[in-house]
Amino acid sequence: MLSPKSTEIVRATLPAVGGAVGEITPLFYRKLFADRPELLRDLFNRGNQAVGSQQRALAGAFAAFATSLVEHPDTYPVTLLSRIAHKHASLGITADQYPLVHRHLFAAIAEVLGEAVTPEVAAAWDEVYWLMANALIELETRLYEQAGVPAGDVFTDCRVTGRRAETADVTTFTVRPLDGRPAPAARPGQYVSVQVALPDGARQIRQYSISGQPDGALQFSVKRDGEVSRHLHDHVGTDDVVRVGAPFGDVTLDEGDAPLLLASAGIGCTPMQGMLAHLVTTASERRVIAVHADRSEADHAFRDDLPLLVGKLANAEAHVWYERPAGAWPAERTGYADLSTLDVPAGTVAYLCGPLPFMRAVRGQLLEAGVAAADIHYEVFGPDLWLVAEG
């Protein structure tokens, strides 16, 4: 926890720092990339940097952590830290990178806030930074140990053993390690990082949800959206080699016996596909409600797989909504997903994945149906701006 003196200083200066993070974080990244251009080339998502979503996520996370330290001094924001640690581990972030971030972040804070950053203010916020950094380092160390890899050494050369078009813009890739070992075990709902060499020499990394684990392999599905996904669609085929990271991700299927609701929209169906496949493999008898929303039948990845998997479960049902169905389709299933029409059992644990407006709407409907907020879990593709906004 923060020292008493630092707590008072952080509480007093939080509005000023929080109000300036929109200036601080872009300046921080400019300083960082000027010093280490290879980080933008080979580690950070250039697309997220260009639109500013990564800057907003960092700013929100740092401010949310500081606020938590002041308002709840005896606890850490576990969910926030876990989400960041899993993403860091998937990228191979190591403890020795935190001093570099500290140097450029605090240089940016001093430049933006000027004389307001007295030695006492700098020391208090330094304490905040290292409390957060050390908590993340500890979590990431544990994740590397659980994955059975040295810290940061998460990538393995894998051969593409299968490629299947799910829709016009979604393709599933099946990969196996080149060394002949089985792919690392993954929990349903996790993702892998995939690193590709782009024409300009950059080696960019993106995360993709695991949509299945067939016979010692890993399967991930990619929507054609962004420079890495376009490269995978256009240039990576069967027998090609890609670098794939160990599975990470903290939104994983609960192994209890509570009823489940899996709600997805668009490409958000990929982690749900992996969860359903796991339930089938384990012959689960849990009550399962699978919900999916999409633009049309043609846009629905795994459209044929969904009823097949649900049909193999003892107590499962599927509900699908299309905004613009191409053929005959029930009127009550046309438009946006409306979970208020479903019978959601007491004690349901829900998992959501899709665009933020969809997840906000579904979460609200589930809360209205009596699902506990703590039992509603979600996965976001890209920087998690929703989590930091909620604190």
Rank of each mutant, 00 (worst) to 15 (best):
M1D: 14
M1I: 10
L2R: 06
P4T: 08
I9F: 09
I9N: 02
R11S: 10
V17C: 01
G19W: 04
V21N: 02
I24V: 10
I24G: 02
R30F: 07
P37N: 06
F44D: 09
N45A: 06
R46W: 04
R46F: 09
R46Q: 15
A50R: 11
S53M: 09
Q54P: 02
Q55S: 13
A59M: 00
A59R: 01
L69N: 06
P77S: 13
T79N: 15
L80S: 03
L81M: 13
I84S: 01
G92L: 01
D96A: 08
Y98H: 06
L100P: 02
L105P: 02
A107H: 00
L113R: 04
P119E: 01
A124N: 01
W125T: 00
W130T: 08
I137A: 06
R142L: 14
Y144N: 10
Q146F: 05
A151L: 15
A151E: 14
F155P: 12
F155M: 15
D157W: 06
R159F: 13
R164H: 15
T172S: 15
T172G: 12
V175H: 07
D179W: 05
R181K: 13
P182S: 13
A183L: 11
Q190P: 10
Y191N: 02
V192P: 08
V194K: 04
P199A: 07
G201I: 03
A202T: 11
I205V: 15
L218N: 00
S221Q: 10
V222A: 05
G226R: 05
E227W: 11
H231A: 06
L232F: 07
L232Y: 03
D234E: 12
V236H: 07
T238R: 14
V241R: 12
V242T: 10
G245P: 12
A246T: 11
P247E: 03
F248V: 00
L261I: 05
I267Q: 03
M272T: 07
Q273C: 13
V280I: 13
A283S: 10
E285P: 12
V288I: 13
V291G: 02
F302V: 11
L306I: 15
P307W: 08
L309G: 08
K312P: 14
L313I: 08
H319L: 10
G327R: 13
E332T: 12
R333P: 12
S340T: 15
L342R: 09
L342K: 09
P345G: 04
A350E: 02
Y351E: 01
G354C: 01
G354E: 03
R360H: 10
G364Y: 04
G364Q: 07
E368M: 02
I376G: 00
E379W: 00
W386D: 14
W386R: 11
W386I: 07
A389M: 09
G391E: 14
